[in-house]
């Protein structure tokens, strides 16, 4: 039973005001250590579940973002490759024309 943890939950976790008030009221009015312990267990279980939900969300998002970055990177690479081909074509055409001009001068 960590009061610090409980306090931290009240201060930082996404609970609405009414629920926080219920918790505070229950704990402040109860003189029964068993009830207190059960309350803590419940709240901590909720917090862990919340953390798990958030962890799942963030990990999922990271994975999706990684996949997206990978896809984007591949598209960029493909684009770069095609652009380079175009640039090569441009140079080749230029070179051919140069050679033609050169041949004509001979």
């Amino acid at each position: 039973m960590s009061w610090t943890r409980f306090q931290n939950i009240l201060q930082t976790r996404p609970l609405d005001r009414e629920t926080k008030l219920m918790l505070i009221d229950l704990l402040s009015m109860s003189v029964d250590p068993k009830l207190e312990g059960d309350l803590f267990k419940l709240v901590f279980a909720w917090e862990e579940s919340e953390a798990a939900t958030q962890r799942q969300l963030t990990e999922g998002i990271k994975k999706i973002m990684d996949e997206y970055s990978h896809d984007e990177q591949q598209l960029d690479q493909q684009r770069q490759k095609t652009t380079l081909t175009l640039a090569d074509d441009l140079k080749r055409q230029t070179r051919i024309q140069q050679l033609k001009d050169y041949l004509q001068t001979l």
Binding site: L15, E18, T19, L26, L39, W46, T53
Partner: peptide, 13 residues
């Protein structure tokens, strides 16, 4: 999760 928490607290009260 939050509903469970709220309902339980309410019941406890």
């Amino acid at each position: 999760n939050t509903q469970v928490l709220k309902e339980t607290l309410n019941s406890a009260l």
